Amino acid sequence: MTASARGARRRVVLDTDLGTDVDDALALALLLGSPEVELLGVTTVYGDTGLRARATSRLLELAGVPGPAAPGGLPVRAGAAAPLSGTPVWWAGHEGTLLGDLTTATTTPPAPGRSAAEDAADWLAATAASAPGGVDLLAIGPLTQVATALRHHPELASHLRSLVVMGGRWDGALTPEGLLEDEHNLRSDAVAAAEVLTSGATTLVVGLEVTQQVRLEPGDVERIAAAGPLGAALAAQVRQWWEFWDEPWGVPHDPVTALLLVQPELLELGPPGRVEVHDRGAVVHHPDPAGTVRVALGVDAERAAAAVVRRVLAGCHRAGGRERA
Rank of each mutant, 00 (worst) to 15 (best):
V191G: 07
R303Y: 06
E247G: 03
H159W: 05
T56V: 08
R11L: 10
L32R: 03
D254A: 14
G7R: 11
A173I: 14
G7E: 09
L234P: 13
S85R: 00
T104N: 11
A126N: 04
A27N: 06
D21E: 11
D246P: 07
G7T: 13
T127D: 02
V42T: 08
R310S: 13
H278G: 15
T144S: 14
V89I: 09
L174H: 02
D23H: 15
R161A: 15
H153I: 07
R187S: 11
L26F: 08
V164F: 08
V308Q: 10
E181P: 01
E268P: 13
R303D: 08
E195I: 10
P112L: 15
R310G: 12
V205A: 05
G64C: 06
A305T: 11
V214W: 13
V309I: 14
E209G: 02
R294F: 05
D101H: 11
P176E: 00
A131P: 02
D288W: 03
T20H: 04
V205I: 07
L216W: 09
S188V: 08
L234S: 02
V191Q: 12
G133L: 01
E181I: 10
L230Q: 06
T44I: 02
R294A: 10
G298A: 14
D17K: 11
E323T: 15
D122P: 03
L160Q: 01
G100Q: 14
G320S: 04
V277M: 01
A78H: 09
L261D: 04
T175Y: 00
L62I: 13
G50W: 06
L84W: 06
P88L: 10
A325T: 08
E323L: 14
H278K: 13
L39Q: 00
G141T: 02
A149T: 01
L59C: 06
L259E: 10
G64F: 12
L266W: 05
G141E: 03
A173F: 09
